[in-house]
Each structure stands twice: as C-alpha cells, then as structure tokens.
C-alpha cells in the first residue's frame, strides 16, 4: 500500500487536535453546547469561500498558461468546495432551528451560500459532461470565472434585498463576546479545516494526474489506427 502523504497525516493530526479542543472548551455563555456547531460551521463557510477563490485562480491561470495543472487545481478545489458549501448550509440550518426557531431564513448570507452551492453544482456537472481534457478545461475555466465574477453581484443584490443575519461575529469588536478559550478553539478549527482542504485538494489532483498518466500509458502503446478495426468482409465463410 502507498504510504499516506505528509499533508494527509498533518491534516489528520491538526483535525484531531482541533476536535479535542472544541470538545474541551467550556460551553458558550449564551448558547451553551449548541455553539460548538460553530467549530464546524464557521470553518466550513470559510472553506466554501476559499475554494471558490481557488477555483477562480485556477481557471484564470489555465486560460493564461494553457497548462492543465491549473485546470486540475480549479476542478479539485470545486469538488472539495461543494462538499463544504453543503456542510455549511446543513449546519447553518441545524444551528438556526434552535436559535432562530426556523430551519431556513431568508437572510443574505444564507441565500448567497445557497446560490454558491448551485453554481458549484452546475460547474461540476459541466466538468462531468465533457470527456476531452482540453475541451473540459477551456469550457469550465470560462464558467469558473463567470460564476465567481457574478458572485459579488449576487451578494450585493441579496444584501440589498434583505439583511437579518447577525453581522460577522469574530471581527466585530463588541461581537458575541466570545471567551478567549472559545475563540482560540475556533481559530484552531479554522486552521485544521484549512489543512484538511489542502490535503483533499492535493489528493484530488493526484488522482487526476494518475488518470492522465494512465491515459498516456495506453496511448503510448502501439495502438492500431481506427481504420484498422475494419476488415474486409468475408462472404461465404459464415457457418
């Protein structure tokens, strides 16, 4: 068996530490144990945005450099991103039910995340639909850019439409009055999730590279040209 990559081991290690820390910190003053959902929800949301950004970067770099490694980065990041965007939505709903009393509320950040989720699904569906690697890279790069460029417009319009959500809790000085240990654990979780993201993207890219290598290996063998598959009809020799 192949030895796991150092990044995988490091990600697993930090994630474990973050989990233990998250379970050990005292419950939050107002929301109690429920606030622990934030240790997953906040880092997932961060990753959703991060992977969108990386997909944009990979798409733009592919169009500039025409090197498929950038396309693999864009694709891998979107695959990891769609998972974390979904997780963000699911956990947001789980947290929202006891906090706001409803599973879903039409606030700006929630709607934006849901839109991002669908944009990701469309992007991945496009990738799945095209077999030729170069064709796929070109088309998905344009969609990757279009999707991300539209996001500020979506964000802006949704924000304008309505805002209910509490403003960001971490960066606001008079925020949720998070205790120092709680805040520390949250940063730990953010760090661990970012490591997990890096490890997953790396693994996806490694997979994609293996597929390319396999295809090249098949191609490098002396394969008969397509026309050779057709032979002269052998009339009269049928049993």
């Amino acid at each position: 068996m192949k030895r796991p990559h150092w990044l995988t081991i490091a990600a697993a290690g930090t994630l474990l530490t973050a989990m233990v820390t998250a379970l050990m910190v005292p419950p939050e003053r107002v929301q109690g144990d429920l606030a622990r959902v934030l240790f997953v929800h906040v880092p997932s949301a961060w990753l959703a945005y991060l992977s969108f950004g990386v997909t944009l970067l990979g798409s733009a770099m592919y169009l500039i450099k025409q090197d498929l490694k950038w396309d693999r980065l864009a694709g891998a990041s979107a695959e990891v991103g769609v998972f974390f965007t979904g997780l963000t939505l699911a956990l947001g709903m789980i947290w929202g039910k006891p906090t706001w009393g409803v599973w879903w509320t039409w606030d700006a950040r929630l709607v934006l995340t849901a839109v991002m989720f669908f944009v990701y699904l469309g992007y991945l569906a496009l990738r799945r639909g095209i077999d030729d690697p170069v064709d796929r890279a070109k088309r998905s790069a344009w969609l990757g850019i279009l999707g991300v460029v539209q996001i500020p417009l979506v964000h802006f319009s949704v924000l304008w439409w309505r805002t209910l959500h509490q403003p960001p809790t971490l960066l606001r000085p008079d925020g949720m009055q998070m205790d120092a240990p709680f805040r520390g654990a949250l940063f730990m979780a953010l760090f661990a999730f970012t490591m997990v993201y890096a490890a997953l993207v790396r693994a996806h890219i490694a997979n994609a590279k293996d597929e390319v290598r396999l295809a090249e290996l098949i191609a490098s063998e002396e394969v008969e040209v397509a026309g050779a598959a057709i032979t002269a009809p052998t009339l009269g020799e049928v049993d």
């Binding site: 709607v111 839109v115 669908f118 944009v119 699904l121 469309g122 569906a125 496009l126 639909g129 095209i130 030729d132 064709d135 088309r139 344009w142 969609l143 279009l146 999707g147 539209q150 417009l153 979506v154 802006f156 319009s157 949704v158 304008w160 439409w161």
Partner: peptide, 29 residues
C-alpha cells in the same frame, strides 16, 4: 456556448438560474 459540447440541453438551466438571481431580485424589487 459554454455547454455546447454537451449534447443534452438540461445543463444550461442549472448554470443560468443561480447566476440570474440578481436579475430576478431587481425585476421583482
């Protein structure tokens, strides 16, 4: 145009609808 190498036309609505959210909001507002 982006999806033109895919024969099925069902992908286009999935791409268009989320990106058209600002248009819907603007029109209704």
């Amino acid at each position: 145009t982006i999806a033109s190498s895919i024969s099925s036309a069902t992908l286009v609505p999935l791409i268009v609808v989320p990106l058209a959210v600002p248009m819907l909001l603007a029109a209704t507002q």
